[in-house]
Design a protein around this nucleic acid. Structure first.
Lengths: 342, 342
DNA sequence: ATTGGCACTCAGGTACTTGGAGTGCCAATC
DNA sequence: GATTGGCACTCCAAGTACCTGAGTGCCAAT
């Protein structure tokens, strides 16, 4: 592929992203000093169009990048945009103030929305990749117990269990100790296996209750495979809604209301070094065919705990968005490392 | 105020809510059998307009209700719409499946959004009105402790504390017991007072750590006066956006992103028997001048734990919305009663 | 108090015109 | 062979003009 043709494509994308208007050969040749005449640019454009990278909304209009054009741009043309020192510091100080996991997630998602001016999505650290820090069992009224899991990433999951018979505080303590002895430090994925032998280890009188608790614990863990996510910046969708979202942004908003969709958007928590960019039609959901998603994993060290990313119109500033997403992911990972309970 | 004039106002509101179009005297006289001629209706309309209950978008257009008109409608005219048995059952079964507090809130907010087709907002049971069910103190690595509050409404709040020195499990247990002895069953509002004398009750060696923990506990409680809310159904705003939201729905979406705003929307948790309807300009925030808010408190028994409600265009079906909100609040209260840990 | 009649208003639709940005193609040039 | 200027062509968008019809206010009659 001709070098200049790539330059032309880049120029088209840059201009289109900035102005939101189809860009013509003349203004293009003027604004970017390509050193060639509009006619030459026209030739290149015709060629680019034939190859499917750009298109015309109608005859005698300028060109607009296609999804394929953006793809090429992201893969081969765009330069990485460095973060300004001020931004860097802003990120850091903003995240530093977090007091607990919820707060970290809340702050990150807002930060990301603000930096990119798109919709931000942050997944809570995955339970699957977390280890048990502590299991708590609290006696409530009557025969009810409250089971609390605390993970090394700071997540807390609780469940009610009605065990049928009331227990003394000592008995509950006994159960708690059994749980902790077996589970402390274990990966959550291993919990089911570890729990299976548990009933043998307590006095027969306690076994029925223990079995109940175990059942609920397992159910809770399976349930919560459904991971949690947090969203911010939906208002950003309206920034240029009419132009970017042909019909309306209704379908997009609807999609964003579904946790499941959000999780799919972020995809599997990929390792923090590779960024995933899904452009327009590349998204599975039809409702999101006019949006792009930029996502990346985050975590302490190099294993991903979960993912975060943003969603915006296909016509977005990819280099800028990508650096912002990468930077936030890195800082979140670091924050969890320092701040997390482990 | 003339009886027929009220009838006319009701008719105008009903028609306008249904069609979204200014309603004229002729179609009005036809569709609702008022028993009078269009001319008479016109006279009434002129009078209603003079009094500020309706207005014309422009000369020679039909009439549109003003905020004041809706207000009168809500206060004096509208009949309570009963819930269908099917709806009733749907609500019940939908809420019954909830496994924990988060789940109850999530389900309620979705349900409310679905029933009313507006944006739903549900506040978590207020900490201020909750009592301490249990306090947990868990030793983590090094000198760190994890402080967990469990309330009788099922909320769990956790905080990290670095106490400076490492403690043995026994020592941590001792601290935990002290906390529970004093706080168990106490209202959260009383906690600060109760904690003030605490340091005297433990061995001198533990006092510095205890002071640290207390400081964090207090801070957390003050912090979390900032209550939590959950949102759903923003996509509903787009239903008739162009007509209902003159500029765009941007400002509305922005407002909804602010927790503080949401909390203000719901207002103080008012008792479950009175519903608050704030129409258009009656809302404090200018960004919400073209929306109405319908909210009510919910709780087990007759004290309100928190509030829930919906936000929609001023042009909404008030009677329907109000019954839905009231019904959901009632069922949520009941669900928490049965399902809650207390 | 209610009604029919009547002149008046004005938003929204349709039809037509025009200007200009942009294109494709071709012949001339380097 | 790539690049360029010239030129005819296309077509959207904006502007103008016009018309229609729903709706009004007012007045005189019932």
């Amino acid at each position: 592929m001709d070098d200049r043709k790539l330059d032309v494509l880049r120029a088209i994308i840059e201009d289109f992203v900035a102005t939101q208007e189809p860009v013509g050969s003349k203004s293009l040749a003027e604004r970017h000093n390509l050193g060639v005449s509009p006619a030459t640019v026209r030739n290149d454009m015709a060629s680019l169009e034939e190859e499917g990278y750009i298109t015309q909304p109608h005859t005698s209009a300028g060109r607009v990048p296609t999804d394929l054009g953006y793809r090429l741009f992201v893969d081969r043309i765009s330069a990485v945009k460095p973060l300004s020192g001020a931004e860097r510091r802003a990120i850091q100080t903003f995240l530093e103030g977090a007091v607990d996991l919820d707060d970290v997630v809340r702050r990150s998602v807002r930060l990301l929305a603000q930096l990119t001016r798109h919709v931000a999505v942050v997944q809570y650290p995955s339970l699957e990749r977390s280890a048990v820090r502590h299991v708590e069992l609290v006696a409530l009224q009557g025969s009810r117990l409250l089971l609390v899991f605390i993970t090394d990433t700071g997540r807390v999951e609780q469940r009610l269990v009605d065990v049928g018979t009331a227990h003394t505080a000592d008995e509950v303590g006994e159960l708690r100790d059994v749980f902790n002895a077996v589970l402390d430090g274990a990966m959550l994925t291993d919990v089911p296996t570890l729990l299976s032998d548990l009933p043998d280890q307590v006095r027969p009188e306690l076994r029925p209750s223990l079995v109940n608790v175990i059942a609920v614990a397992l159910e809770a863990l399976v349930d919560k495979r459904e991971e949690r996510v947090m969203l911010a910046g939906t208002a950003n969708l309206t920034r240029a809604a009419a132009l970017d979202f042909p019909g309306t942004l209704r379908p997009v908003l609807e999609a964003l209301e579904e946790q499941v969709v959000l999780l799919k958007l972020l995809g599997e928590a990929h390792d923090p070094s590779t960024m995933v960019v899904r452009i327009g039609q590349e998204n599975e959901l039809e409702q999101l065919h006019s949006t792009s998603v930029v996502s990346i994993g985050y975590g302490s060290g190099d294993t991903a705990l979960a993912s975060l990313g943003v969603l915006g119109p296909t016509r977005m500033d990819y280099p800028g968005t990508m650096t912002a997403v990468r930077a936030v992911a890195r800082y979140v990972g670091r924050t969890l490392d320092v701040n997390g309970p482990s």
